[in-house]
């Protein structure tokens, strides 16, 4: 199993990591815990799985891309 993990913006700087690959997880929450070594999770953090918004308890599968990022501020 291989899951690609990405971090963006302020979250990337806080974690000190832009991307990572983990070998095992069943939910996005677990992906966060493994990829960040159980770093504290911001309450307002957003999650995307395969480029679509998802929830922390959403399931992940082999080959998925899971991204974590802060509230968006474009426009």
């Amino acid at each position: 199993m291989s899951i690609q993990v990405k971090f963006f913006a302020s979250l990337r700087e806080q974690i000190g990591l832009a991307d990572s690959i983990i070998e095992q997880a069943s939910t996005a929450d677990e992906v966060w815990a493994i990829a960040t070594d159980n770093a504290e999770r911001p309450d307002n953090m957003l999650v995307a799985i395969n480029l679509e918004y998802a929830k922390l308890n959403s399931s992940v599968s082999d080959g998925d891309e899971v991204a974590f990022f802060p509230p968006v501020t474009g426009g």
Binding site: F8, A9, S10, E13, A48, Y53, F69, P70, P71, V72, T73, G74, G75
Partner: peptide, 27 residues
């Protein structure tokens, strides 16, 4: 469209204010 974009499209602003760079936390 502009309201949806501002609150959901994955863009993030980092501003240079005086001597520090600051991530904008909300629109």
């Amino acid at each position: 469209l502009i309201e949806e974009l501002k609150f959901k499209a994955p863009f993030w602003k980092k501003e240079t204010r005086n001597d520090s760079d600051v991530w904008v936390e909300h629109n």
